[in-house]
């Protein structure tokens, strides 16, 4: 393959990764690194650099659409970004000392976990919880539009007779646990060049009991900031190669936008299952190649 052919093939692969990532809500970044390393034989460090760039692009590109809906919680997002950016800096720092085989194995485990979440799907947290003193002090509690039900077959229960503009209140719980899990999400993002959507959902939905739509949109908002925190370090380390970032960034971005356009008519549940199987297979192969020391 010459340069033009290689660029085109990687762009097409990235396009499908971005489209599936946006349709399933799992993010395209999680398959970019396995795609580049396992299929195109790219060194995992270049792959992580290119993936990180695509993660910033999709997060920031999708933000405008998400924000208009009025679901995201700015204070929750900013407060947790302290944890994710510190985590991302630690991850990028550690990456300089960990062998590429170890990174491949950790990557495989994260892929398997993401595949597991894509089958179960996140549970909507219980409602009507009492306020939490830490969350009250930090003014994290919020409201979200109760009358609009949209998108991916999400089980958002609608407030009875929700008139236009009605908003449902929620209380944020377990702030320290959520903060700790967000540090982990940031660490994995910085170490592996991914958005860590699966861990963020674990922190916000399961630990902090934030409603699903609020956590999804807020976490999308945070992913770009988290990735930008480690991107500066990776750029200086020479992990971000322009010839590779070119097709990956533009491919994933075009794919994600296409995914958002065709989302209303898509069979999201089936897609999540298919994507889950693909991710699981890639995870096993990453672990296998990591153990063999081939990555």
């Amino acid at each position: 393959m010459n340069t033009v052919e290689f660029t085109l093939v990687v762009a097409i692969g990235s396009f499908f990764a971005g489209m599936l990532g946006s349709l399933t809500g799992l993010g395209g970044g999680v398959v970019i690194v396995p795609l580049l390393t396992l299929v195109f034989g790219v060194d995992i460090r270049y792959a992580i650099g290119a993936s990180l760039v695509s993660v910033i692009a999709t997060s920031s590109g999708a933000a405008a659409a998400y924000l208009r809906e009025g679901y995201s919680n700015m204070r929750v997002g900013m407060f947790l970004e302290v944890a994710t950016t510190v985590g991302a800096l630690s991850g990028a720092f550690i990456a300089g000392y960990v062998s590429t085989s170890a990174i491949a194995i950790i990557f495989g485990v994260v892929l398997l976990y993401s595949a597991y979440t894509s089958f179960g799907g996140p549970k909507e947290p219980e409602k009507g919880l009492a306020p939490d003193p830490v969350a009250t002090f930090l003014r994290l509690d919020g409201t979200f539009p109760a009358d609009r039900v949209r998108g991916a077959g999400d089980a958002i229960s609608v407030a009875a007779g929700g008139a236009s503009g009605a908003r449902e209140a929620y209380h944020v719980r377990n702030v320290p646990a959520g903060f700790g899990l967000m540090y982990l999400a940031g660490l994995l993002s910085g170490l592996l060049g991914i958005g860590s959507g699966a861990v963020k959902v674990l922190a916000m939905d399961q630990a902090m009991k934030i409603p699903f739509k609020v956590s999804t949109t807020t976490s999308n908002f945070m992913i770009g900031v988290t990735a930008a925190a480690s991107a500066g370090i990776y750029l200086r380390r020479g992990y971000i190669d322009p010839g590779l970032a070119l097709p990956v960034m533009l491919g994933v971005l075009a794919g994600a936008l296409t995914g958002a356009l065709i989302l209303p008519g898509a069979k999201v549940k089936t897609l999540r299952m298919v994507f889950g199987v693909v991710i699981a297979a890639l995870g096993v192969q990453m672990i296998f190649e990591g153990v063999r020391g081939k990555l």
Binding site: G224, V225, A231, L235
Partner: peptide
């Protein structure tokens, strides 16, 4: 290309 990537990294910072 790298300049474009720097603009991309700067975007969340501006946010």
């Amino acid at each position: 290309i790298q300049l474009g990537i720097l603009v991309l990294i700067a975007t969340p910072v501006a946010r």
